[in-house]
Nucleic acid binder design. Structure first.
Lengths: 239, 239
DNA sequence: CGGACAATTGAAGCCGGTCAAAACTGGTGG
DNA sequence: CCACCAGTTTTGACCGGCTTCAATTGTCCG
């Protein structure tokens, strides 16, 4: 039940995605690409741009977002190691509807459109894996939508902290509290609020002993407490 | 550019979906199903339920939504004639993450899971059509997310009225202003606001000559005016 | 050390949610 | 045909969460 609200099992992980592909197909997909190091803050592609391939995030973290004329942006997803980027536009045969940019130094492999589509059209395994992944993504998006529409900023912050805690888990010690390394502005843009509001709430959470703010980063100290703040059951009774 | 924000070209229409399929495959998909008349207000499937097939909406209108313990619901999509329902859960091999119910009398064909999956696994045409549709759906969902996160209730109402105007177009005279036949509660749940707030805004819109409220229904009188209210360009300048 | 940018704190005000109650609607049965 | 009831729509009043604007503090580097 908790899973439904904030967990990220819909992530398009390549290990799942490549399952059942022949070595030749895997070769053509991943190994054929050019790998490039993106510095923190670099843009990978921009909304309105023409897709020319997909991106495989070897290491690092990438935000997917929309920008507005006012200057602000809305982040709706954070990619971590092993995920693919930019495939929606290719599949849908449309221009990029969103932008992607690194939030830390990242190693990214570019797979040309032709290679991706070639493998896609000859491998039913890849098709099926993609369909499964996209079907699950749906759950993620309606979670986001309902959270934004019905939850307070405070609750949304708590939810996002839980998600981020998961995404920032260091591979080695999965049990340790993660160090969530994200600027206030980025976090605010994920939660969908003003930076000032976010800062105030973080302060409150820290006072309550739920989190610890350490130089630019955040760690969850009291996970059950944060879960309670998130009100995942919708426990706010009618009256 | 307007398209990006509120138009619904991502709709999973069967006519596009069945393109390239053999007659036998089309037969197995659509014609094999059982068609049933759902009365207005009936539930087709409920979140948490086990998917046993997909639904083809022959005629009528269906809302897709999430419910909360508090009793309220969030509508995130409105299906019209010709669309499919419930395929995400089958593809993702998960329980229904959302609910679906009719908002008017509807004719719906049920296609058993086995038939759907059989055709899916033997027809690359269907796979590709589905992938394309799902890729485009992505655009729709990030539109919803960014609208909810960054736009005022007033702007969101305007946007939704434009979408609904499109969805309630009567097939015969596409040029006439549509009659949007939706309860205040449903409309509020689409916009993501309280019924009372919605009613007040509708009143304002009518006073401004943008819309006309006729017994339970709404018609757009001044479409350019509504578009202006929607602030689609994000024209609200920084200062 | 200074300059730029990020983070924080303060104060003011409005948008929108909530509660309560009135007005309106359609449907039902006497 | 009218009175009544249940559900929906509408209006009113209140107030609290958030946004916004402004200003201060903190931090990282050249």
């Amino acid at each position: 039940m908790l899973r439904n609200t904030f967990s990220e099992h819909s992530r398009l992980r390549t290990d799942q995605l490549l399952e059942g592909l022949t070595m030749a197909e895997q070769e053509l997909l991943i190994s054929s690409g050019v790998t490039h190091l993106y510095k923190k803050g670099e843009i990978i592609f921009r909304e309105g741009g023409i897709p020319t391939g997909i991106f495989y995030l070897v290491s690092g973290r990438v935000k997917k977002f929309r920008t507005f004329p006012k200057g602000n942006e809305q982040i709706f997803y954070l990619c971590t190691k092993g995920e693919l980027l930019g495939y929606h536009a290719l599949l849908g045969e449309v221009l990029y509807p969103d932008s992607a940019g690194t939030i830390e130094d990242s190693l990214i492999t570019f797979v040309p459109k032709e290679n991706f589509l070639t493998v896609l059209h000859q491998s039913t395994a890849l098709s099926n894996n993609l369909l499964k992944a996209l079907g699950r993504e749906f759950t993620h998006f309606i979670n986001s939508i309902t959270n934004l529409a019905t939850k307070s900023v405070r609750e949304r912050l708590a939810i996002n902290l839980l998600i981020l805690d998961d995404k920032f888990k260091s591979g080695d010690r999965a049990k340790m509290p993660s160090v969530i390394n994200l600027s206030r502005a980025d976090l605010a843009n994920m939660v969908g609020t003003a930076t000032e509001t976010l800062v105030r709430l973080l302060h409150e959470f820290q006072d309550a002993g739920l989190i610890k703010k350490t130089e630019k980063a955040i760690s969850i100290l009291d996970r059950p407490g944060v879960i309670k703040e998130a009100n995942l059951g919708g426990l706010k009774l009618k009256r």
